[in-house]
Nucleic acid binder design. Sequence first.
DNA 1: CTGAAAGCGCTAACAT
DNA 2: ATGTTAGCGCTTTCAG
Lengths: 331, 331
Amino acid sequence: MTVSKVINNKAGISEATRQKVHLAVAELGYVVNATARALSAGRTNTLGIVVPSIGPQYISEVIRGADLAAREAGLDLLISTTQEDTEHESQNVGRLTHGLVDGLLMVLPRSVQSYAHALMHAHVPVVVVATGNQNSPFPLVDSDHYQGARAAMSHLLSLGHHRIGFIAGRADTAASLERFRGYQEGLLTAGLVPEPVLVEEGNYTQPGGFAAALRLLQATPAVTAIFAANDLSAFGAMEAVKELGLRVPQDVSVMGFDDIPQASQVYPALTTIRQPLTEMGRAGIKQLLNVLHGAGTVTDRLVLPTELICRASTAPPPAGYLTSEPLLSPG
Amino acid sequence: MTVSKVINNKAGISEATRQKVHLAVAELGYVVNATARALSAGRTNTLGIVVPSIGPQYISEVIRGADLAAREAGLDLLISTTQEDTEHESQNVGRLTHGLVDGLLMVLPRSVQSYAHALMHAHVPVVVVATGNQNSPFPLVDSDHYQGARAAMSHLLSLGHHRIGFIAGRADTAASLERFRGYQEGLLTAGLVPEPVLVEEGNYTQPGGFAAALRLLQATPAVTAIFAANDLSAFGAMEAVKELGLRVPQDVSVMGFDDIPQASQVYPALTTIRQPLTEMGRAGIKQLLNVLHGAGTVTDRLVLPTELICRASTAPPPAGYLTSEPLLSPG
DNA sequence: CTGAAAGCGCTAACAT
DNA sequence: ATGTTAGCGCTTTCAG
């Protein structure tokens, strides 16, 4: 039909006919059947994004970025959750990549391994958002966890802190390990010695951060600053500081990592390392589009920079501590 | 082909052939093309859910419930966000309902009006999750905000509080209004008089709750309990209480509404009214399935009960306040 | 510039 | 129990 050409804005249609068709479409309430179009045209104009779950804020942010980028490109975004059910889900991934979507963005905080098979046989391009350094046979988008941690340490050290505790994340995520490495090397570069007693597991959760900070502050009351591996555990740490009758930041400074929306909404507002979550989603979709259009560049490993966001939860250490030991300038 | 029958588990196939087909499928790595199947069969085995955005926790919970229910029914869930872009999105809804999904669940905290046109012309069943009392031409799932607020007030009153502040939500949501009504009538039923000075706007946000609680406690230091219209503003209220050098719950009790996951993770853990968010998602999908299968019942207005979740943020008022005025038993 | 014909990959109804 | 035929609603290719 001529109608098809009008609807798809193809050339070779007189303006008069175009108008007539548009009128009729409006009158009849005609809406194209996306399924039929997809089958016929061989593409769906839909991109897929697979996430472990939609609960955690940082994943929401990635999705939001992907959603915006897809929308700008005039494509739909189909969100699929794995709910940790790898078995069933890798089947689902297979289905997605065979006719349902034109490209797939996998958000995988932990391992890409479980999907390797389904992904290798995908009929569409795949890009991985890793949130942690991983090897991947697909183009990968990540952020610079190590440099972020270094920036956090520089900030705390330059404020005059030298007893800095670290609340670790999940040991099974590369991101947590990288952040820990940044913490350690930050100390070393400043001429300080990492002490095991200053490191506690927080498991990336708020109660975990609370408990870890409690242990930290009770074992080493001289701690004047806490760097948590993510914002959630930093929230818990702030609660722990207050619970001990201390103030943030006057007595103890607290830093997080991620900059989820809530970081700016808690009291005091959290100083943190911003991970460009929405940009990571955007970048992932953009890479996908570049592959699809055969234009632009596809970077095998795109590592986005992190950034210090200075808010109200950090300050110089209390006067008593400030002069007790000279601070070596970092770097 | 016979293959089709095997894959769809149709009857009338010998076990031997079935095995042979399965083998070949595995060997060739064959995966059905969902698009073609959808076009041919006239259904997509996909349900759609439209949400304003995926950021807020309470929406994530609704999606999770919907996701689980859809998964159990062997259907996929296509999540679409409006990002408040009503114009563009109502077009999108039109597309969804014309071939992309077999049914649509609309999560609309505010108004269904903007989508009325697109929805009325939908070719598939539509169910609305409202989070607030609304009229709707479609089956609606909601929770009982009024009774929840009453339960919250009963809890606080029975603990001995009689100067109870309220942090309101957004005036443009029916849910907030219902919760406020529950607050007022809770007071009245207990023989107490609602005072305007005890009500502050919190806008459903954490900073909003913080500021509202600050105003509340400074204007009326005799306030011994704060009931916030949602958990987020309750978090802010808890921060405000601590900021004033008071303790939760020893000096001031704080209650929220929703029971988002974080409510159990903050310190002290938040006493709140649980809105069955995942169940609402589930129920919405279930209603959709009932319409689709022509079985079970479809309730025009399904109002799920709310529930008091007693945690650590509420306690009897400080001794000085307890006896200053006799408490009339509620009801 | 417009219309007719073919076919995307599958399923449903109908033969064999 | 298996195979055959038609057609889902669209886009694409090719004639008018």
